[in-house]
Amino acid sequence: MSDLKETLKEQIIEQLNLEDLTPADIQNEAPLFGEGLGLDSIDALEFIVLLEQNYNIKISDPSEGKEIFQSVDSLAAYIEKHQ
């Protein structure tokens, strides 16, 4: 699980062009949107692409995204459950 979280952080940085961040700057439990990394709705779409391209997971109901993309912890848990 911890390996998955580290991989996820690297993929998030690359997919979202967070060029000033390193994986160490992203806390597992910290919110990704709003006051956390300050991500926005376009980034939410990028997360959907990231999950499908890298983990073959399709999110068919966009309303699920709010819960899934809350943090690295929640993302990793969703991937573990659906792979």
Partner: peptide, 13 residues
């Protein structure tokens, strides 16, 4: 080249 259903939105926009 994409094999998935979704494309990265940023480059398109």
């Amino acid at each position: 080249t994409a094999t998935s259903d979704f494309l990265s939105p940023t480059a398109f926009i």
